[in-house]
Design a protein around this nucleic acid. Sequence first.
RNA 1: GGGCCGGUAGCUCAGUUUGGCCAGAGCGUCGGACUUUUAAUCCGGGUGUCCUGGGUUCGAAUCCCAGCCGGCCCA
Length: 491
Amino acid sequence: MPSDELFLVRLRKTENLRSRGIDPYPRSYHRTHTATEAVEQFELAEVSGEGEAETDEVSIGGRIIGMRGMGRVTFCDILDGSGKVQAMFRSNALGDAYETLKDLDLGDWIGVSGAMTRTRRGEVTIQASSLAVLCKSLRPLPEKWHGLTDTEARYRQRYLDLIANPEARRVATIRSRMVSAIRRFMDRRGFMEVETPMLVPVPAGGMAHPFETRHNALSRDLFLRIATELHLKRLIVGGIEKVYEIGRIFRNEGIDASHNPEFTTMESYEAFADYNDVMRLVEDLVSTVATEVTGSPIVEYGDQQINFSPTWPRLSLVDQVQKHSGISLTESQTIDSLKAKMRSAGIDTANQVSWAGLVDKLISTAVEPRIVQPTFLVDYPVQVSPLAKRTAHDPRLVERFEAFAAGMEIANAFTELNDPVDQRARFEEQEQLRADLPQEEWDRLDEDFLIAIEHGMPPTGGLGMGMDRLAMLLSGQRTIREVVLFPQMRS
RNA sequence: GGGCCGGUAGCUCAGUUUGGCCAGAGCGUCGGACUUUUAAUCCGGGUGUCCUGGGUUCGAAUCCCAGCCGGCCCA
């Protein structure tokens, strides 16, 4: 237990309360109103009532975040989940209970009962007729005016951030409303929400480095999933024709402004659909969700305005790469030729050892940052898309798109590969690439999944969306750490 | 993995360039005054592993080295 002065003073106050017969940690408190409800009810009564507004007694509960003592009268700002309300304590109204204030500090939880009134300075205030201690706090709050700005403390002790900074509460609320709006949208469209395993024997369905773990009773090594894709497709095989999952996935890779080792995706799969249907789903979903969450399909992001209203442009990936870098992907099919062209275009290729890796790098440096308004880039090289079906016109390309906005990738989708022989060949190629180039990430052959689609998966359009990045866009945040309540930190 | 910036009181920060007069301010806290304040005001008091460990020096928050933690950029 800490021995600093502030802590000891508060412990002493806690004992003072007990010695006066006040339980500093009572079991419950029944409030009749939130802070905001109490204020709004009073303002309504003022408008509709004649003469002086009067309300019945209300009871509110919250944390003291401001205290202004004037001797025989004290004003407190009380914060609850709805907002803030001022409480006024007068010694002649409270009698002995007024002395309780001496043992209260900023940060303590109290309950206040009384009639609402408006003070001389015009603030709607609860005039206390009784005061209840709900929880004595032992540690001080961050400074009242500047709040908590230290980023490290804001991430490690998010509760302090939430208490001190309204912006932290706003961002958390936007994310929550975004997720529920997505859920409502998908449910309205007839998709069924499911949960699939997080502990998997094969970390397949993407190109990512997995977290490893072990189940003792089964005496078996397992991995945390890197994607939900392959299990959701098994459900398509099982006849669940419209299915989705909002879930955490895990990638054992670097941490930066747009990457946290655990993050949330929404993946959906729809039988009898292709990637054109999925594009319409994505633009409808994002514009609907943006409107529900922010009130408008047009979102401010930095100094940009992003308009999510349909219809988003569909642009050929190969054309866009050509346009922005001068490089033709279809004519640069070998590592050496692509690398040479990227180097002469001024792109650093030192860390890339595969054609797929070069393409990733090329898209992320030459194309992605230039896309501000929501855009679909369509038809990707088959080498970077082992789970997508080839296009009818060119077997080197697949029916895949990625959606970009504000220079960020927000969705990735395909017409799903349902030819089990081609899928097995693609997996085998991935395994061969890993054997040859283990320094890069490759997808993994999942035999159990192959058996599933060998039973027949209907034509299917699939989608993956990054929830964290969408939350960044809708809340105007520049780093993923701001939209994840408890981001991963060192030691 | 590399570069740059930062870490000083519970919180927000100054002091580091140019080593000593340097352990500082505000908020909070403690004592006192005050019955309509709202960053309340007024009077008075104590804030401390200057991130950690070495080194240089008569003397280090300040200079040097190593490390830890955070941020930004690059890979």
